[in-house]
């Protein structure tokens, strides 16, 4: 009886300790990367390579998902607004929801799916093959050489991807609202311009920059600490770490989303 009670308390304690350790690892990992900004040559070539991977190669996916998101929002809002006879609000509704909320979140989810998972798996396999130990042996700073370019690339690329998503979403809304359902073009475009203020655009940009940071931070850290956090460091460990990275970065991204929204509204 007493023994089982001790065991229960022990297991609760070990879970809490592990969580706190994991949070601490994530924090020091980020601090290590950020500290490489000073006193080192900026890794420009690597950053451009990562911009290509994170940014340019995600563009087709962003364009297609942006277009369809815009089209479906326009369709739903059209169907709702027509019941109140205020279809002229369509442009404002589409642009407002895209720029403030859906653009940053959907673009970030696309980046998690395409970039976060790939990065975590890549880093995890590098850890498995002891490539980080090899880099250490050659006195190459892996935080500086591997991590920093990826984080910087995400901070630059994700806001730009989000802006492309917004523009294509607005275009998709235009196709459905104006071309298919015959909402007046002037109402759609001026409605948008009258409603959206700089603060809305700024909120979208701040959100997406933070999302980009969160996604790559979590994905890199989960891959890098594979050998500490996973029981089996083999293929199973990589798959487990990738799943963890995707889930944690998506949840943390939505949490940051709420915090930024509540601070800026």
């Amino acid at each position: 009886m007493f023994n089982s009670l001790t065991l229960t308390i022990e297991s609760i304690g070990s879970v809490v300790v592990r969580r706190i350790e994991s949070a601490g690892r994530l924090g020091t990992f980020l601090a290590q990367i950020v500290s490489r900004l000073w006193g080192h040559k900026f890794p420009l070539g690597e950053t451009i390579k990562q911009l290509h991977f994170v940014g340019a190669r995600t563009v087709p996916l962003i364009l297609i998902s942006g277009l369809f998101t815009g089209m479906v929002i326009a369709l739903q809002f059209y169907d709702t607004l027509i019941r109140f006879g205020s279809v002229e609000l369509l442009g404002a509704a589409v642009a407002m929801s895209l720029i403030r909320e859906l653009g940053p979140v959907m673009a970030a989810l696309m980046v998690i799916a395409r970039v976060g998972s790939a990065t975590c798996a890549e880093i995890g396999i590098m850890r498995n093959e002891q490539q980080f130990d090899a880099l250490d042996c050659m006195a190459i700073d892996s935080y500086h050489y591997i991590m920093l370019p990826r984080l910087i690339a995400a901070l630059i690329a994700v806001p730009l991807l989000t802006a492309l998503f917004d523009v294509f979403g607005i275009g998709g809304g235009y196709i459905v609202g104006v071309l298919i359902h015959g909402v007046s073009e002037g109402a759609y475009l001026t409605g948008m311009a009258d409603t959206i203020v700089w603060n809305d655009v700024l909120m979208g940009l701040i959100k997406s920059t933070l999302f980009g940071g969160v996604i790559l931070w979590i994905s890199l850290a989960k891959g890098f600490y594979l050998h500490i956090e996973q029981k089996n460091a083999g293929a199973e460990g990589v798959s487990q770490a990738t799943t963890n990275a995707v889930v944690l970065s998506a949840v943390l991204m939505l949490f940051v989303d709420y915090i930024v929204s509540s601070l800026m509204i």
Partner: peptide, 25 residues
């Protein structure tokens, strides 16, 4: 590679500019 990245940056910046200037005024 540089060309493609440059193109991406320019397209992204154009989108940001469109959102800020045309839509947000």
């Amino acid at each position: 590679l540089n060309f493609i990245v440059g193109l991406f940056i320019i397209a992204g910046m154009a989108a940001v500019a469109y959102l800020s200037v045309t839509i947000a005024g």
